[in-house]
């Protein structure tokens, strides 16, 4: 399957990355090449195999639900491009009529 420039545009919208036209064309070509190789995996007999998500089989770690010290809000906000009081500030999210 060959990816078109339009496919790349649609996928990059999903990925929330704005691409310029040059990147769209380049990625269409490069990703088609990568997928051509990936498609060969189809031919491998994987019957009876589990999906290996993690190689060591460790399960997630849980801890007691006790409050522990965490970052000071000032430190947590230090790297934000925009902030107000103890909050991150972002452009409008909800449409206003």
């Amino acid at each position: 399957m060959r990816l078109s420039k339009e496919d790349i545009k649609r996928i990059s919208d999903l990925a929330r990355i704005e691409l310029n036209e040059e990147d769209e064309s380049l990625f269409a070509e490069q990703m088609s090449g990568i997928l051509r190789i990936v498609n060969k995996l189809d031919k491998v007999d994987t019957s009876g195999m589990d999906q290996m998500v993690t190689p060591t089989g460790f399960t997630n770690v849980l801890r007691e639900d006790i409050a522990l010290p965490s970052l000071d809000p000032k430190e947590a906000l230090f790297n934000a491009a925009d902030r107000e009081g103890a909050f991150f500030k972002v452009p409008r999210i909800i449409e206003v009529d």
Partner: peptide, 21 residues
């Protein structure tokens, strides 16, 4: 979308787009 488009280079963008696909 614009921040990511400007902030990331080609290799990173291509891998994210490939991964999203």
């Amino acid at each position: 979308a614009i921040s990511r488009g400007k902030g990331f280079g080609s290799e990173v963008k291509r891998r994210i787009v490939l991964g999203t696909h």
